[in-house]
Measured scan of single mutants.
Amino acid sequence: DEDELTGILKKLSLEKYQPIFEEQEVDMEAFLTLTDGDLKELGIKTDGSRQQILAAISELNAG
């Protein structure tokens, strides 16, 4: 699971946030449920980064 998540972050060039997800024990299943508020709480402060992550999440959820 973590590897898939790392792959997604790398694709977005946001792998610098990978340790945050690891630290908070966010797995792929949890990742797919994250909201903008969750990402802010995790410490992802950049709007653009959150938008990219949320776009990836909705794409993955759309299947």
Rank of each mutant, 00 (worst) to 15 (best):
D1S: 14
D1L: 15
D1K: 15
D1F: 06
D1I: 15
D1A: 13
E2F: 15
E2V: 07
E2G: 09
E2L: 15
E2W: 15
E2S: 15
E2A: 13
E2R: 15
D3R: 12
D3G: 04
D3F: 15
D3E: 11
D3I: 11
D3C: 14
D3A: 09
D3N: 11
D3K: 15
E4L: 06
E4W: 02
E4M: 07
E4Q: 02
E4R: 02
E4Y: 03
L5W: 04
L5D: 00
L5S: 00
L5G: 00
L5V: 09
L5H: 00
L5R: 01
T6I: 04
T6V: 05
T6S: 04
G7F: 13
G7L: 15
G7P: 10
G7T: 15
G7I: 15
G7M: 15
G7Y: 12
G7E: 13
I8M: 15
I8Y: 09
I8K: 09
I8G: 03
I8N: 08
I8D: 03
L9D: 00
L9R: 00
L9I: 01
L9T: 00
L9N: 00
L9W: 00
L9M: 08
K10Y: 01
K10I: 01
K10Q: 07
K10H: 05
K10N: 04
K11G: 08
K11A: 09
K11P: 01
K11W: 05
L12H: 15
L12M: 14
L12V: 05
L12A: 04
L12E: 00
L12S: 03
L12F: 14
S13T: 10
L14E: 01
L14W: 00
L14M: 06
L14F: 02
L14H: 00
L14C: 02
L14Y: 00
E15V: 05
E15W: 02
E15L: 09
E15D: 09
E15M: 10
K16P: 13
K16S: 11
K16H: 14
K16C: 11
K16M: 11
K16G: 10
K16Q: 07
Y17V: 05
Y17P: 01
Y17N: 06
Y17F: 12
Y17I: 02
Y17R: 01
Y17D: 06
Y17T: 03
Y17M: 14
Q18P: 01
Q18N: 03
Q18Y: 03
Q18M: 13
Q18T: 11
Q18K: 14
P19D: 13
P19R: 10
P19M: 13
P19W: 08
I20A: 10
I20E: 06
I20S: 06
I20C: 14
F21T: 02
F21C: 01
F21I: 02
F21Y: 02
F21A: 05
F21H: 02
F21N: 03
E22Y: 08
E22N: 08
E22L: 09
E22T: 11
E22K: 11
E22P: 01
E22A: 10
E22C: 06
E23Q: 09
E23S: 09
E23G: 08
E23F: 01
E23W: 00
Q24I: 04
Q24A: 13
Q24S: 13
Q24R: 11
Q24G: 10
Q24N: 14
Q24C: 08
Q24M: 09
E25W: 04
E25G: 13
E25Y: 07
E25R: 09
E25Q: 08
E25D: 09
E25A: 14
E25H: 12
E25K: 15
E25S: 11
V26G: 03
V26K: 04
V26A: 03
V26H: 01
V26T: 04
V26N: 02
D27M: 01
D27Y: 01
D27E: 06
D27P: 04
D27G: 07
M28C: 06
M28L: 09
M28Q: 07
E29M: 06
E29L: 03
E29A: 13
E29D: 10
A30R: 15
A30D: 07
A30Y: 08
A30E: 11
F31D: 03
F31I: 06
F31V: 06
F31Q: 03
F31E: 05
L32F: 07
L32E: 07
L32K: 15
L32M: 11
L32G: 07
L32Y: 06
L32Q: 10
T33E: 13
T33R: 14
T33S: 13
T33A: 13
T33F: 02
T33Y: 04
T33P: 01
T33H: 13
L34N: 04
L34T: 03
L34D: 02
L34H: 05
L34W: 02
L34R: 03
L34G: 03
L34F: 06
T35E: 12
T35N: 11
T35Q: 13
T35G: 08
T35C: 05
T35R: 12
D36M: 04
D36Y: 03
D36N: 07
D36S: 05
D36G: 05
G37W: 06
G37D: 15
G37I: 10
G37V: 13
G37A: 13
G37T: 12
D38Q: 09
D38S: 08
D38W: 00
D38M: 02
D38L: 00
D38N: 08
L39A: 02
L39I: 04
L39R: 02
L39W: 00
L39F: 02
L39Q: 02
L39D: 03
L39C: 02
K40G: 06
K40W: 07
K40R: 12
K40E: 12
K40T: 10
K40H: 07
K40M: 08
K40Y: 10
E41A: 12
E41Y: 06
E41Q: 14
E41G: 11
E41H: 12
E41I: 04
E41M: 07
E41S: 13
E41N: 12
L42M: 14
L42F: 09
G43M: 02
G43S: 04
G43N: 06
G43P: 01
G43F: 03
G43E: 03
G43I: 00
G43W: 00
G43Q: 02
I44E: 02
I44C: 04
I44N: 02
I44H: 01
I44D: 01
I44S: 02
K45R: 13
K45V: 08
K45C: 08
K45Q: 09
K45F: 09
K45E: 14
K45N: 11
K45L: 12
K45M: 14
K45I: 05
T46M: 13
T46G: 13
T46N: 09
D47M: 10
D47E: 14
D47K: 10
D47N: 10
D47W: 06
D47C: 10
G48H: 08
G48K: 10
G48P: 11
G48C: 13
G48Q: 13
G48V: 13
G48N: 10
G48Y: 06
S49W: 05
S49F: 07
S49V: 14
S49Y: 07
S49N: 13
S49Q: 13
S49I: 14
S49L: 08
R50T: 01
R50C: 05
R50S: 03
R50H: 03
R50M: 01
R50N: 02
Q51R: 11
Q51M: 08
Q51I: 05
Q51W: 01
Q51P: 03
Q51C: 05
Q51L: 07
Q51G: 08
Q52V: 07
Q52R: 12
Q52L: 10
Q52P: 01
Q52N: 08
Q52W: 01
Q52Y: 03
Q52S: 10
Q52K: 11
I53W: 00
I53S: 04
I53K: 02
I53F: 04
I53N: 04
L54W: 01
L54P: 06
L54H: 04
L54E: 07
L54Y: 02
A55V: 06
A55P: 03
A55C: 14
A55L: 09
A55Q: 13
A56I: 04
A56K: 08
A56T: 10
A56F: 07
A56L: 09
I57Q: 10
I57T: 08
I57H: 07
I57V: 08
I57F: 01
I57P: 05
S58K: 15
S58A: 14
S58H: 10
S58F: 04
S58M: 08
S58W: 05
E59C: 07
E59F: 04
E59W: 05
E59M: 09
E59Q: 11
E59P: 02
E59R: 11
E59G: 11
L60D: 05
L60K: 03
L60N: 07
L60Y: 14
N61D: 06
N61F: 01
N61H: 13
A62M: 08
A62I: 06
A62E: 14
A62R: 12
A62V: 10
G63K: 09
G63I: 09
G63M: 06
G63Y: 09
G63F: 03
G63L: 09
